[in-house]
Amino acid sequence: MSPMTSLSASQRLQAFANPARFMALSARLLAPLWVVSLGFLGVGLYYALFASPPDYQQGETVRIMYVHVPSAWLAMFGYSVMAMASAVALIFRHPLADLCAKSAAPIGAAFTFLALVTGALWGKPMWGAWWVWDARLTSVLILFFLYLGYMALWTAIEEPTRAARAAAVLALVGAINVPIIRYSVDWWNTLHQPASVFRMDGPTIAPEMLLPLALMAFGFTFLFVTLLLVRMRAEILRHRVRMLRLAQAAARAED
């Protein structure tokens, strides 16, 4: 290969993040990432279940927070990863960015689902109902719909490059709309605030509760990155399988 200095900026970017290099780099990163995420989660679980006190107001239900809040955080983190990767894909036309956005969606959706279900399980003892149309719950539900729509679009369009472009446009429109939706839901909620419902403005967090929360949040975040790499590697292989099949078909046609 010619020296790096003779390459244009965009070529250098290509070389920096080409799929082959990504495969080599991610292969080396995966083992440590698994260890770090499982380590954080293991220690976090110990603190969450055994080594932290019950809340003076919420009692033992506060332990639900250690799963619920990190999931909710990853629900939003996942969408940001998806939106940023989509922006990079549209601007720089980089194939890895498309794969990154595609791979982030199911992980984000899974954590959004987890946030919703654990929210319902927290709501029942706290609010006396499985589901309340609370501003936060409602916007997370809408976020879940956005994830589902994004994944549905990927599966609906057969040709991968076309699907990638369309999905990237959808993810970006979603990213512009998320704050608007969030604001409107908050606004709607203050308008309809039911007086009888116990309002939970997020427990003021004591330091002994912050530690398990931080450990679980780190663990989940590292797990997210690990799974993202695994899924991106699978996507690169899928692309390669497709290329090989096309080449095979072309070779057969020549015979």
Binding site: I142, G149, A152, G174, N177, S184
Partner: peptide
């Protein structure tokens, strides 16, 4: 059907402000 699914979340602010 897919188009409706994709667009409906974006319609919600319109619904909220319009109804109120």
């Amino acid at each position: 059907l897919l188009a409706s699914l994709l667009v409906l979340p974006f319609y919600l602010p319109v619904l909220i402000f319009g109804v109120s």
